[in-house]
């Protein structure tokens, strides 16, 4: 260890190694998206970019919701249901005067927080395994969605909806602005807070975290609450895109599964403790761009799921290299 310059170099090395996942996902997305717009007959027109952004941001929000419980070594199988439920709720509330719309938005977001809080209570105080707890609560939220909207439809303030899904000055998709705002106003402060770091600590080793005096219960609870909030933002955006709501359980299920995939592709470990929402966002974009690429290259739609699956399997396998380093075989079975 000699001199300041070598220390700097080491700083950079540590920064790079701790951000490897998001960097790879971002690079992958940029390459894939560039290919997509060059192949697309309309090129990089505002319309193409906006459509892609809206689709990507929807999944990005649901996947961000998934990320935080995963960081605590948990899982939230209800994110898709909360997404659908808040969509149904928003399709009845986002109507009327601007004031009514604002109130509606607040209620929709609050309902997401409430769902997350229920998940957190069941996981933390019920001491149930997150996967089972959220499977059950997710089914409940789907039920609430059906009760709110037995048949698809809705009455949505179109000015508001068009604004949310349009482009600023016809260049920057507004959904991207919302996503960026969520990162800057929610994710980054959370990541830098003590409870945010506690989430990483709990995921890294719950026992060591407890021994160190980390507020384990509060950290887990907040993780699920934030998951509910992000899922509700996604539900709101979906309502703006479709001008309606639909209690579509299949849609919820597919978003839940895609969210887990996006988390993994974005470099967050399913064992918890490492990764983050920025990587997840790029992971979600990558997943959505795969679909777009298959479309512009005219691949038979019937074989798209197969392609998607292969890509997922490869990216998930990258995460298990660490197992090669295990010295006690017993530890593989822990």
């Amino acid at each position: 260890m000699s001199g300041v310059s070598s220390l700097r170099a080491q700083d950079v090395r540590y920064w790079l190694s701790s951000h490897r996942g998001p960097l790879i996902a971002a690079a992958l997305f940029v390459a894939m998206f560039a290919l997509f717009v060059t192949e697309h007959p309309a090129g990089a027109s505002a319309n193409v970019v906006n459509t892609a952004a809206n689709k990507g941001v929807l999944l990005a929000f649901v996947a961000m919701a998934q990320t935080i419980p995963v960081l605590t070594a948990g899982l939230d199988l209800s994110v898709g249901s909360v997404f659908v439920m808040t969509n149904c709720l928003a399709s009845t509330l986002i109507a009327g005067t601007p004031l009514q719309v604002a109130l509606g938005v607040a209620i929709v977001l609050a309902s997401g927080l409430l769902c997350g809080a229920l998940n957190g209570l069941v996981v933390v105080f019920g001491r149930l395994q997150p996967i089972i707890a959220t499977l059950a609560t997710g089914a409940m939220y789907s039920g609430v969605a059906l009760w709110l909207r037995p048949a698809p439809g809705g009455d949505v303030n179109e000015d508001f909806a068009d604004f949310m899904t349009g482009s600023l000055r016809d260049v920057v998709p507004f959904s991207i602005v919302v996503l960026a705002a969520a990162v800057v106003l929610i994710w980054i402060p959370y990541r830098r807070s003590v409870l945010g770091r506690a989430a990483y600590a709990v995921g890294s080793s719950e026992q060591a975290a407890y021994m160190s005096g980390v507020p384990v219960a509060r950290a887990k609870f907040l993780a699920y609450v934030l998951a509910g909030l992000f899922a509700a933002i996604a539900g709101l955006l979906l309502t703006c895109l479709t001008y309606s709501g639909e209690a579509n359980a299949l849609l919820g299920g597919s978003y839940t599964l895609s969210s887990i995939a996006a988390v993994v592709v974005g470099g967050t470990s399913l064992y918890g403790g490492s990764g983050g929402a920025i990587g997840t966002i790029f992971g979600a974009f990558v997943l959505r761009t795969i679909g777009d690429l298959l479309f512009v290259f005219d691949i038979d739609p019937l074989s798209q799921p197969l392609f998607l699956g292969v890509v997922l399997l490869i990216s998930v396998s990258l995460g298990s290299f660490r197992l090669l380093k295990v010295k006690k075989r017993v530890d593989l079975y822990r």
Partner: peptide, 19 residues
């Protein structure tokens, strides 16, 4: 038995409670 958090940095571990 160590009470360190393996995925966190050394600095994060040292400041874990009251940074």
């Amino acid at each position: 038995e160590l009470s360190l958090l393996p995925d966190l940095t050394v600095a994060d571990n040292i400041g874990i409670i009251d940074p």
